Computed example of a mutant assay.
Amino acid sequence: MTETAKNTTEEEMHDASPAEQVAAEEAAQEDVAQDQAEAAKTPDDVIAALQAENAELKDRLLRTAAEAENIRRRAKKDVEDSANYAITKFARDLLDVSDNLRRALEAVGDGAQQNEAMKTLIEGVEMTERTLLKSFEQNGIEKLEPLGEKLDPNKHQAVFEMPSTEHPDGHVAQVMQAGYVLKGRLLRPAMVGVAKGGNATPDANDEPGSNVDTSA
């Protein structure tokens, strides 16, 4: 330190308040201690410090790369989901059309087949239904008709319980409305009646709670 700088520092210290003087002295002592510590480092200490710094930087790089990969995967999945399920709303609207076609066919009495005009109309409705279901299949829409299956809350909506001698307790004894899935994702649950109090023997693999999805 030059004589002029030293005199300037002494003048500043003289003009400073006691608290400022203490803080300045402590800062000066820390600088001296840091300089001494740097001077006391051996080459091994320097190498160890550089290795530790390198390891930290490598860890940060790996974390950044992993985060970037996760973002890329999420973006890819979002794009795939957008492509796969873009027709969800349109598909749900078409389900009502399918339901109405099925109701029309079920409402036809046996005598209608004796009338040629009605027979032709029925065949036309059946053909329309088959065409619609084929279009559903081509677009990944699958119909669920779970009669006789064990109740699955993830796919079926139980509307009522009913006695049944044909189906074990907890199984679907009647399908009120078919369900649909779109490429594995539930589009609409099947509305069903569930057997209860019947005499049918349950399957050996049916255990209490086995129809509950525990993957969540």
Results as ranks from 00 to 15, higher is better:
residue 72 R to Y: 14
residue 151 L to W: 03
residue 40 A to V: 06
residue 53 E to T: 08
residue 38 E to D: 12
residue 41 K to T: 06
residue 154 N to Y: 04
residue 90 F to S: 14
residue 31 D to R: 12
residue 81 D to M: 03
residue 26 E to N: 08
residue 46 V to Y: 03
residue 143 K to E: 06
residue 43 P to F: 06
residue 128 T to N: 02
residue 67 E to C: 05
residue 117 A to L: 13
residue 102 R to D: 07
residue 71 I to E: 13
residue 29 Q to W: 09
residue 47 I to D: 06
residue 112 A to H: 08
residue 76 K to M: 09
residue 127 M to Y: 15
residue 30 E to M: 07
residue 66 A to I: 11
residue 135 S to L: 10
residue 89 K to S: 13
residue 72 R to A: 11
residue 99 D to P: 05
residue 39 A to N: 05
residue 54 N to P: 07
residue 44 D to H: 05
residue 109 G to D: 05
residue 110 D to G: 06
residue 40 A to Q: 04
residue 89 K to R: 10
residue 37 A to K: 06
residue 137 E to T: 11
residue 27 A to P: 00
residue 99 D to Y: 01
residue 130 R to N: 03
residue 61 L to Q: 13
residue 88 T to V: 06
residue 159 V to A: 02
residue 79 V to M: 06
residue 89 K to I: 10
residue 49 A to G: 04
residue 28 A to V: 01
residue 141 I to G: 09
residue 59 D to N: 09
residue 32 V to Y: 08
residue 123 E to I: 04
residue 59 D to K: 09
residue 93 D to S: 14
residue 111 G to W: 11
residue 125 V to W: 01
residue 66 A to F: 11
residue 43 P to V: 01
residue 96 D to M: 11
residue 65 A to N: 13
residue 45 D to L: 04
residue 110 D to I: 03
residue 46 V to A: 02
residue 132 L to G: 00
residue 68 A to M: 15
residue 131 T to D: 15
residue 82 S to Q: 13
residue 40 A to M: 11
residue 76 K to T: 12
residue 136 F to C: 02
residue 86 A to I: 05
residue 76 K to L: 15
residue 28 A to Y: 06
residue 51 Q to L: 09
residue 42 T to W: 04
residue 106 E to D: 15
residue 153 P to W: 02
residue 80 E to H: 05
residue 100 N to Y: 08
residue 97 V to H: 04
residue 72 R to E: 12
residue 38 E to Q: 03
residue 68 A to L: 14
residue 79 V to H: 09
residue 44 D to P: 04
residue 118 M to S: 13
residue 94 L to S: 03
residue 115 N to H: 10
residue 87 I to F: 05
residue 139 N to Y: 06
residue 80 E to P: 00
residue 160 F to A: 08
residue 35 D to E: 14
residue 80 E to C: 03
residue 93 D to E: 08
residue 78 D to K: 11
residue 69 E to V: 10
residue 49 A to T: 07
residue 147 L to P: 01
residue 47 I to A: 10
residue 30 E to P: 02
residue 49 A to M: 07
residue 105 L to R: 11
residue 132 L to V: 01
residue 59 D to P: 00
residue 69 E to G: 02
residue 74 R to M: 11
residue 162 M to T: 04
residue 97 V to T: 06
residue 144 L to D: 00
residue 32 V to L: 09
residue 125 V to A: 01
residue 85 Y to D: 04
residue 34 Q to C: 03
residue 41 K to L: 13
residue 74 R to D: 12
